[in-house]
Design a protein around this nucleic acid. Structure first.
Lengths: 222, 222
DNA sequence: AATCCGGTTTAGTTTTGACTAATTTTGTAT
DNA sequence: ATACAAAATTAGTCAAAACTAAACCGGATT
């Protein structure tokens, strides 16, 4: 099975299927259409092609999942994306909310050489600035400490942010200004009706539930 | 006149027209077809579209040239390309013969932010590793010392390589191994029938005329 | 002046990946 | 059991950018 050259679209489909699978366990045409910003018939059409290439399996009216080969490719793209995000942040002074957009375009065009060069330069990091795991060069997903969404936590304690699961620029921008970013220790004050009250570096905020559920936390380095 | 969003193909056409214009002063469909690795009818077709967008002017059966707007865009792409080449060489340890290929793909997808970031990082360089001038942020072509092709030189003297005008990987690879690269001082020995005899860092080579005419030289820093 | 030939253009086709409109399926609610 | 609504699929269209084959200039040669 030699390696077929995929279009950027096709890579995006595979990547998105992979990411949706992590959350939903069944991936619908509609979810894909929303994420990829295309209409459902376009998705059905593309899925058919990917099916013919043995990159996905499709039960009509049920859902899609990646084949072994499809997942490999998705992980390659994801590795490019996340290495690039970290690289842009660390070496080119990109702010937290700008990195996604640029990486989204670059991920499809960098060579293996480029990938290896920036991975070397950054000492083979395991997580990107949003806390997302970066697949290794062998396309394994690295170990991550177990995390839970902020709203699921009870009582009041000190925790650390592990991952922020959105790529919405405005939300990211807001969170970065509040320093609600991976690695940050925060103090859980109270779970109120309107949101979750937290203390960050001395400042106290009420984080609305809609935003709080995007923030995944773990216990502080014990 | 608002800024139209161009496809990568279209950017390549404009860039190539600009580069050919520097050499030939009239740009034929065939030259373009060769450079872009496309058939002549494809060129005619695309030129028509670019004409309709007021990016080029076309005298049928004569040739094309860029309009003001078209040239601006060509210079933008060229700036991206040449900044990227230098960046890859300086910061990601790319070898001299690898940079062109990668820059060729990246030039179309990097943002203004990326461009500015690497330009800053490198202190706003004026020439890329091949000695080609890098258009400024304002899209002016920077001053370059005047150069002449190696075969046009008579007598025996010491000169400095200013520019190597090819992007053929094999030739670049050869030249870099002989250290025949911009900035290098070389000693002109003799213009023979088979080529030009030069001395570089103590080693003497016979450079065939086909290759010698790609090497442009200036006088050593007086 | 007529011819010829290389370069250019026209005409028509293909592929890719989107779209809309119409139809079909599936699961749920009556 | 039937009907309905949401989701998925089919059928057919469009635009971009390439292609081939065929027709068409226009400058050099005779």
């Amino acid at each position: 099975m030699e390696k077929p050259r995929l279009s950027e679209s096709q890579e995006d489909y595979l990547k998105e299927i992979f990411k949706l699978r992590e959350l939903n366990d069944t991936v619908s045409m509609q979810d894909l259409a929303r994420k990829l910003e295309v209409r459902p018939p376009s998705v059905t059409g593309m899925i058919k092609k990917l099916c013919a290439m043995d990159l996905v399996e499709h039960e009509p009216y049920k859902g899609v999942k990646l084949t072994e080969t499809g997942e490999k490719i998705a992980l390659e793209v994801l590795r490019h994306h996340r290495l690039l995000e970290l690289y842009l942040a660390r070496h080119l002074n990109y702010s937290w909310d700008e990195i996604h957009e640029e990486a989204e375009r670059l991920e499809h065009v960098i060579s293996e050489k480029f990938e290896a060069a920036i991975a070397d330069l950054m000492d083979h990091p395991t997580h990107d600035p949003h806390g997302d795991p970066i697949p290794t060069a062998e396309l394994e997903i690295p170990y991550s400490p177990s995390l839970v969404p902020l709203p699921s936590l009870k009582g009041s304690k000190t925790i650390v942010i592990g991952r922020v699961m959105t790529q919405d620029k405005d939300i990211l921008n807001l969170l970065s200004r509040l320093e609600l970013i991976p690695g940050q220790e925060i103090e859980l004050i109270k779970n109120e009706a309107a949101g979750i009250r937290v203390k960050v570096n001395g400042s106290q905020y009420l984080v609305p539930h809609t935003i709080a559920r995007l923030i995944w936390c773990g216990s502080t380095g014990t």
